[in-house]
Design a protein around this nucleic acid. Structure first.
Lengths: 343, 343
DNA sequence: CCGTCGAGTGTAAGCGCTTCCACTCGCTGG
DNA sequence: CCAGCGAGTGGAAGCGCTTACACTCGACGG
């Protein structure tokens, strides 16, 4: 199909010369902007084909003043949650003709510089949770780079997309109360905005039922973190703090870790202790026992963020918008056999 | 810290003007290229600070002729495998000062165009398995864009990184034979290079033991795909094809699906049928029963690809290199109780 | 005392494209 | 028959940076 000789970078000048026209005409022919005689277009296209010409993205971007690319900052990609969100994001961004640049902040020191660099490469950014400091977010907003906050408490002048947390947490807690449990523990870090919301919901329901809400035990939102938390919560010294009847975990990975710890301590889940997660990741369904959890529309979260960002970039909307996606309580076996009927 | 007024894009000209120097001096001061008097540098830095100046990435890239960015093409991000590899890739790329652009080909029609676009945005590319046609790979190679193939059969003039498949498959199969199984089924699509290698290993060992290797049952490498395959393989009509004693799956997700199907058919795993996976994803450990599988160094795979690409881009190496990472057989309970001693 | 050198700086030429503007020219309507 | 128009095209000015090259000037050795 293509010529045997292909320089790695024919420029528009070479195409113009070969076609015997000016670069302006080549540009018009290629981008269908402005009139070009049929014959001329023909010549141009032939030259393009023969030279294997692809317009330099840098040239185009510089001239157009846009990157046709979006950025996204997330803490980590291990665990299914962020990966799924990213998937939804990339899919929509690509559909909208934008490339996606990623940046993971996991244990990085110079996050601020990395984010700045990223900002310089894109037309708009999505920032996940608490991956970057408020100061940096402010800086981005002031630079007028379109910004969408994902699963983070909204800020004055940026869009936000997140999924519902508090109400689902209330539903989950109510469900657990329906099982007859009355002593609870909360496992999971507190410095992510969405987790905080979950705990708020849990606390409210417990308080309403006259139960003093426990302090969440901070831990990394990983299986390992959950395992450590599980050992702490369930392995209390004999005669020490009473073992909780139910452990509500910040996410599914933590829950899986807690289950692991329980198993190791010779405890039966849910017989000796009920455990719940959050997210409904794939492993939740396959866990032993299968995890009661709250399903988050992870891909949709990413997709919505991409669309919101697109609106912002295109200038189709200038007032910040905040979107909350619904979640769903998924009852499986890790919270115990159903007493009578579920309401 | 920064001035209250910040244009969204101060240019080097404004900085130069404010500092009372030429743009060349600003550039030199900022990039430490060429001599700049201490006092001058001082003035420049102050102007930069006051204007909140960040060099335009496009300008820099265009002038330098490089993007300082890498691309990666993968089929999908659902399931932990690709996400983990991507994680390792991004980490190293970022450490090497390169941004990462991603492209998922999942169910996309115009992959070729998307890949071309991506090539125009980066200094080098990593391409996963069979995500793009050979013709496109050829085109990339001819365009002299540094290229690393990941988990794909090597091509003449590109680097390749993959993990060991055949030998581990042999080890896995040998282990299953040690359990005394003699009828097998293979579940998983055949059009990914690495899966083919796995089947080759399995076939070889079976043949060596006088067992006629079964044809792999093609299925998508997802839980759903595995579930469907499981129904087919295990739900044989009464009196029809004999149910296999062991199902060797192309990856862990398929294996989880098969287990799901088995459960639904009232079969016990591993009592009625043994099941094995590949990859050792997180869910493998938490599955019921826990999955016997082959652990792939997923992050390392990505990390190595990033380093190989870096060498290529820097021109530190021009001869293509091919790297094979070791894997590890992980025996858990899904393949049955251990008969006597493992060799 | 003068030629030389190097530190410090500015000028300007790209890098590869888009697009405004000016210009030519065959047609059409008045 | 001519003004006017619109299709088709080229020239050239950016877009924001890097860097080769030229230049100035004070210091220094002979």
């Amino acid at each position: 199909m293509s010529n045997s000789y292909e320089g790695q970078g024919a420029t528009i000048y070479e195409v113009a010369q070969r076609a015997g026209v000016s670069i302006a005409t080549v540009s018009r022919a290629l981008r269908n902007t402005g009139p070009v005689a049929a014959g001329t277009r023909e010549k141009v296209l032939r030259a393009v084909e023969e030279l294997g010409f692809t317009p330099s993205r840098l040239g185009v971007s510089l001239a157009q003043g846009r990157h046709a690319a979006n950025g996204i900052v997330f803490p980590d990609l291990s665990g299914p949650y962020f990966a799924e969100v990213l998937l939804g994001y990339e899919e929509v961004a690509s559909e909208l003709g934008r490339s996606v640049l990623i940046l993971s902040t996991r244990g990085r020191a110079a996050v601020q510089d990395l984010v700045r660099d990223l900002v310089g490469r894109v037309d708009g950014m999505v920032i996940f949770g608490r991956t970057v400091e408020d100061a940096v977010v402010d800086e981005i907003i002031r630079s007028r780079t379109p910004l969408v906050l994902l699963a983070r408490d909204p800020v004055e002048r940026a869009d936000a997309v997140c999924s519902e947390n508090t109400a689902s947490a209330e539903a989950l807690t109510t469900h657990l109360l329906g099982h007859g449990y009355s002593t609870f523990a909360l496992a999971g870090d507190d410095d992510r905005g969405d987790v905080t919301q979950r705990w708020t919901g849990v606390r409210r329901v417990l308080s309403d039922h006259g139960i003093r809400p426990p302090e969440p035990l901070p831990c990394e939102l990983t299986v390992e973190g959950g395992y450590a938390a599980g050992r702490t919560l369930l392995g209390g010294k004999p005669g020490g703090a009473r073992r909780p009847e139910a452990v509500i975990c910040a996410d599914d990975q933590v829950a899986l870790g807690v289950i692991l710890a329980a198993e190791e301590l010779g405890l039966d889940v849910p017989g000796d202790v009920a455990v719940t997660g959050w997210d409904d990741i794939m492993a939740a369904r396959h866990a032993r026992p299968a995890l009661t959890t709250v399903r988050q529309p992870m891909r949709l979260l990413g997709a919505r963020a991409a669309r919101a960002l697109d609106e912002l970039i295109k200038g189709a909307r200038t007032v910040p918008n905040s979107e909350i996606l619904p979640t769903q309580l998924i009852v499986r076996s890790s919270c115990g056999p159903h007493p009578l009927e579920e309401k």
